[in-house]
Design a protein around this nucleic acid. Structure first.
Length: 111
DNA sequence: CCGTTGACGGCGA
DNA sequence: ATCGCCGCCAACG
């Protein structure tokens, strides 16, 4: 067990349903890392074995894609993948979290 | 072992 | 609403 909590992070990301997105803070919260959204990003940076890992469904709290020098060109790829799931981007490159944000169990906001 | 950086978030001005 | 600073933990040099 003394493994990193990254396993939980990956597990949380895998829980994101199709056509929905989650913020780093959300993933961190679900993974039990409440305020450590940075760890989530770092975990994804370590992420080499994707496949079942929908990393593209992870965006920042602003509803926008987090750019990084480590990804440079892959940033656009994320947008493409999200659009392929039916998610629409604004002119600002942001999405409507109210509509696409994934709500973990117990997190459902009242209708 | 110490200092700095980093796929972020929240609060203040 | 935008810009900037601090904080949290882990990894890197």
């Amino acid at each position: 067990m003394a493994r990193t909590n990254y396993s939980k992070i990956y597990a949380a990301i895998r829980r994101i349903p199709f056509g929905k997105v989650a913020t780093y803070g959300q993933i961190a919260e679900v993974a039990g890392l409440s305020r450590q959204a940075r760890l989530v990003g770092y975990a994804l940076f370590n992420q080499k074995v994707d496949g079942d890992l929908p990393w593209h469904r992870v965006v920042n709290a602003q509803g926008a894609i987090s750019y990084s020098p480590a990804r440079q060109k892959a940033d656009h790829l994320q947008r493409v993948l999200l659009e392929a799931e039916g998610i629409v981007f604004n002119a600002r490159g942001r999405i409507d979290l109210k509509q696409y944000r994934w709500q973990p169990k117990g997190r459902q906001r009242k209708a």
